[in-house]
Write a protein that binds this DNA or RNA. Sequence first.
DNA 1: TCTGGGGTCCTAGGACCC
DNA 2: TCTGGGGTCCTAGGACCC
Length: 433
Amino acid sequence: MGDSHTFNTKTLASMFALVDCNNFYASCERVFQPKLRNKPIVVLSNNDGCVIARSNEAKPFIPMGAAAFEYKEIFEREKINVFSSNYALYGDMSNRVMTLLAEFSPDIEVYSIDEAFLKFEGFDAHFDLNEHGKQIRYRVTKGTGIPISVGIAPTKALAKVANKIAKKFSERTGNVYVINTDEQRIKALKWLLIGDVWGVGRQHEKRLEKLGVKTAYDFTLLTEQWVRKNMSVVGVRLLLELQGKSVLEMDVPSSKKNIACTRSFDKNYSDYETISERVATFAVTCAAKLRKQKSCCNAIMIFIHSNYHRKDLPQYSKNIVINLPFPTNSSIELAQFAAIGLKKIFKKGIAYKKAGVIVMNFTPEAIQQTTLFETSNPKHKPIMDVMDSINKSIGKIKIKLASQDPDRTWKMRQEKLSPRYSTRISEAIKIKA
DNA sequence: TCTGGGGTCCTAGGACCC
DNA sequence: TCTGGGGTCCTAGGACCC
């Protein structure tokens, strides 16, 4: 006997599902090497710097963000399989997962590379949400090999909570959990620590704990005024959502408002030539991303950092924002402005470890207005089109500006890179005849 | 020797305008 | 005792996310 007798067949309010991939990067690596099933895996950041993903088996031994060089011995001792990050593979796998998820609702919000919200509407009271979640999980796992968890609830924030429970108690839930009644909601929130709530970071956690707020449930008992004053409207929305009132709608995918390309270097560099080549390349990458979403930027920021882990060396960190005289997405122009900015902030005698370019304040390419005196050079447009099409067909950045190093393909340290199984024919798995 | 790379939203306060 | 009153735009900084 369920409590179905309390419902009739009238349509229920809408429900949200949060679907996310378990240990996504590690799972991607495992898809193509089934012998790694149940084996510990970690994936490293760029330059093989630190750990950014762990399989469940690796979690007891390796904290998130661990510096790879500090854990070398533990990797060996625990026989942990170590991979350099392979974003081409993860991006491709992500697309496959999202495509399958879209079969289950026309209303889907891709929230990150490994997460999506789905909204369900118009089902009746007899509809079995748990069974529906199970079907989603089956479809994705069977179709991609990536294991997922599904949380379903009347609000987005509660769907996040349900998802945590689905994952945490996977043996009992089968990685699917539904919060539907108020009893379930309260029980779940009493279990969830305040610091683990979506939208509560370190700062808010500290303040809330001081106030005696230990769990998500405690939080829902606070007054709206207090939350408003101390956590802004963002906090109020969270409060309402956790109380069961849906205020966060599905976001429509929109163009990016900032685009960044920043990197740590494989080692420290002090010479101007190296840094300026890197910055030019970052600017070119930003320009290409701008053109892809048909935007022009009106400002560009350049920053450089010394290595802040080296307390023994002089520290220096500086950024500069250049407001452009006209909107542009030309690689040539953005590289030029980036060079001007770098000249202003570059200081000699510093060991630089990181630099980046961020473009901001976009206007659509189509309505790019011409100012009276200074305009983006229209001759660049066809050149950029050719650059983009050639680079696209080759698949790697091949056409470069003179300010970029023509000979050297900048190497990240990627000693443990897996093949690009899903994106390169030549590296695809060989199938025996 | 070695420690990631992206993003978003909100608010307060100053500049400026009438 | 007294120093107007709005409004808008912009920016820096804080907080959070994956």
